[in-house]
Amino acid sequence: MRALVGVKRVLDYTTTKIRVKPDGSGIDLSGKQIINPFCEIAIEEAIKLKEKNIIKEVVALSIGPKTFQETLRHSLAMGADKAIHISTDLSPDQKLQPLIVAKILQKIIERDNFELVLLGKQSVDDDFNQTGQLLAGLLDWPQATFASQIAIKDKDVEVTREIDAGLQTIGFKLPGVITCDLRLNTPRYAKIPDIMKAKKKPLEELQLNSLGIDLNTGLEVIKTEAPQQRKGGQVLSSVDELVNKLRNEAKLF
């Protein structure tokens, strides 16, 4: 059994301040970029399943400019076997929308016969949280979103999902699509020898326009702006003052 894992590259939100371009056209993407944290969890899970001999091969796929190959090399260094780079200049946080990504994944799945697809639950740039669900809908496969635990025996999958009220466990037979939430695992650090080895692993390059996918999604981003800043910062000197403010100024009780 083979697993396909989608990986996206995003601004490193832990070290880079998100800056809105003054002309409203989008976010300044010139800072350091890293693998989307949820995608890294998906890769880790696939590799763990491979280590348990549940899946045979892990293929990482990324869609974007040439720099996205660095994210694929990172995935290979973590332990993926092969990588596919779909090359495009579409802006990853505006034009390359989840519906397009899902259609690309569908094409590759139909070409290479994957039985398990692992994706992050959302990317931390456009924050859509849709690709896995769209893909499952396109393929008519079962879906398990927001996974915090995955158990696979033969073709039977059990997934524990993080839902608003707590946890839910569901089961289905493969093939299927699973999207990964934060608590599923802690991604490993790639060791230097693995990073060296990753350079020799196969990386297939395809042009997005060779796949014949309609890039008109019916959703157009027309403006990106900074949110209204909240005015704050009134530091009080005592609990009495706070109770007084809550009671007489905010009138909360």
Binding site: L99, D127, N129, Q133, L134, G137, Q143, T145, T217, L219
Partner: peptide, 23 residues
Amino acid sequence: SSSSGKDILPRVAAKFNTQPATD
């Protein structure tokens, strides 16, 4: 935009070849 709404909406939208708007 709950865990359930987000689970369902894109799956339906896929059947209509449509990009949803979440959140």
